[in-house]
Simulated scan of single mutants.
Amino acid sequence: MNPLAYSMFIISLAMGTTITMSSHHWLMAWIGLEINTLAIIPIMTKNPHPRSIEAATKYFLTQATASALVLFSALLNAWFMGGWNITTMSGLPSTILTVALMMKLGLAPLHFWMPEVLQGISLSTGLILSTWQKIAPMTLLLQLPQHVNIYIMTSFGLLSIFVGGWGGINQTQMRKIMAFSSIGHLGWMILVLKFNPQLTELNFVLYIMMTAAMFLSLMSTNSTKMTDVSTAWIKTPTLISFSLMTLLSLAGLPPLTGFAPKLLIVMELIKQNAIILASAAMMASLLSLFFYLRLTYIMIMVISPNTTSSKGLWKMTKKTNALTAMTTTIALMALPMLPTMILMT
């Protein structure tokens, strides 16, 4: 792709998210979501392959449906309430809007597009789709915690945690594993959104840090399958060691960063007397823990044979850049900074 055109699409992507985050009018928020969607479609198809074209088509159809529901709910709310203010929502429009935004985020049971789309695009585009593209819909949800239905939120959140765990167990493609990981983490955020929006915001920031670190590590080693990960130790043992700890952080194991948001969410649910809900979420997270631990086992414990007939690479094709090192460090070492981050939120 032409660098000038690519830069224009990236700027449009940033502009669409900024418009949605800064708007108080539903029409402007919808315009920002549309700019966001239309800007990433050419980025998805920068490698002219049938698989990427298919992924872009699936993404466009899903996002267009969700955008239509957002616009319909905004029109319905303007009819009922007599205004386009984001913070003023009535019952039926808020329910339709919640479902539409969850479709944009890729939450279960509206998650079917997420693994397929992520599998058909490059790792760099997958990084944008898993992190940046979630910011605008999540910002809208964070502005509406008092208007959303608590039963819809908890049902979608708990189902997403289960689907994120069950779906990733049998996968061998790294992009699909990261897609189901994203579904599971977003489920934890939605589960506590009604009770404590600040905790959802903190969890979302940490999720972006950890997911970006994992994607950048995969991009550095050019690993798209489990077999690529198993042979990456020979090329770059230091980066793979940090990738292993990033996976354990995504799994939520102490004393890494990912443990803190899960602990805080469980404590908040117990504080709200939702003990059964917290227990179900913790049991469901064991499913995702299984495939995270399987990945770490493949990374470290499985060593490729010394004599092989394949012409494998003996060194990295890309150098690890400063961004990969910085995001990995933040994803692993952010636990001591969490009290300050909680006070800021």
Rank of each mutant, 00 (worst) to 15 (best):
Y6A: 14
L13D: 02
M15N: 05
T20S: 15
W26D: 06
W26K: 05
W26Q: 04
L27D: 06
W30H: 06
G32D: 05
E34I: 08
P42W: 05
P48F: 15
P48K: 06
A55Q: 03
A55W: 03
A55M: 09
Y59I: 01
T62N: 10
A74G: 09
L75W: 13
N77T: 07
A78M: 09
M81N: 07
G83S: 11
W84E: 10
W84T: 13
I86A: 12
M89G: 04
S90K: 02
S90Q: 01
L92T: 12
S94L: 08
T95Y: 13
T95I: 13
L101S: 12
L110I: 11
H111L: 12
H111F: 07
V117Q: 03
L118K: 01
I121Y: 02
S122R: 05
L123H: 01
S124A: 11
T125V: 11
S130N: 08
W132N: 06
A136C: 13
L141C: 10
T154S: 05
F162C: 06
G167D: 03
G168H: 00
Q171N: 10
Q171T: 14
T172E: 15
K176P: 08
A179Y: 02
S182W: 00
S182H: 06
L191G: 07
F195D: 12
P197R: 09
T200M: 02
M210Q: 06
A212E: 01
A213Y: 01
M214Q: 13
L216S: 02
T224V: 14
T224Y: 11
S230T: 07
I234V: 13
K235T: 06
K235N: 15
T236S: 13
I240G: 15
I240A: 11
S241R: 08
S243D: 06
M245G: 01
P254Q: 09
P254V: 10
L256Y: 00
F259S: 10
A260V: 06
K262S: 08
L264G: 03
I270S: 15
Q272W: 04
A278Y: 01
A278F: 01
M282S: 13
L286M: 10
L287N: 06
L287A: 12
L289F: 03
F290Q: 03
Y292T: 13
L293W: 02
T296F: 03
P305E: 10
S309D: 07
G312Y: 06
A322Q: 11
T327N: 15
I330Y: 03
A334I: 09
P336R: 07
L338Y: 02
M341I: 07
L343P: 09
L343V: 12
